[in-house]
């Protein structure tokens, strides 16, 4: 159907919006268990978790994007991403779908897009009548300058 290569993405939801991360960046998805807060870490860092025996930081993506943080529930997921030799967990409202998005279906993010997640976007995709924000993992897990 498409002329360009399609890549597999994991879809997740955050504050009612659909986001996508490239499957190749995702190491695994887990239920959120035992997050230990790290005092004086950046506010969007929920803490550290054990994932496959490694201690990895867990980012609360709601806080990262400036949304109201909510309590975790059964749908809450930890998506562990690997990027530039780092492993970082992203806490999202829910995640359970894989989609294939052709490269030409992803548009660069409009500069006028409101909301703080704009800084972490690689593009906007339209698939199955849905608008999906495609994340730039490097930007999301970058440590803020102190």
């Amino acid at each position: 159907m498409t002329t360009t290569a399609a890549e597999s993405y994991i879809l997740f939801e955050l504050a009612g919006t659909a986001y996508a991360i490239a499957s190749r960046d995702v190491q695994r998805m887990e239920m959120v268990e035992h997050v230990t807060p790290v005092p004086n870490a950046p506010a969007f860092v929920e803490g550290v978790v054990f994932s496959r025996g490694k201690v990895v930081p867990a980012i609360n993506l709601r806080r990262r994007f400036g949304f109201q943080a909510t309590a975790f529930d059964l749908r809450t997921r930890l998506i562990v991403v690997a990027h530039a030799d780092r492993s970082v967990g992203l806490i999202v409202d829910s995640a359970r779908e894989f989609v294939s998005i052709p490269a030409d279906a992803i548009q660069p993010p409009p500069e006028t897009l409101a909301g703080t997640s704009g800084r972490y976007l690689k593009g906007v995709a339209t698939a199955d009548d849905r608008v999906i924000l495609v994340l730039d993992i490097g930007g999301v897990i970058d440590a803020p300058e102190t």
Binding site: H34, V38, N40, V48, V49, V55, V56, I141
Partner: peptide, 20 residues
């Protein structure tokens, strides 16, 4: 990880319950 290199925190461990 830089994100969790907080002052005065030297490392992490586990006491048998899976909680860092």
């Amino acid at each position: 990880d830089l994100l969790v290199q907080a002052p005065g925190i030297g490392g992490a461990t586990e006491l048998g319950d899976g909680r860092p």
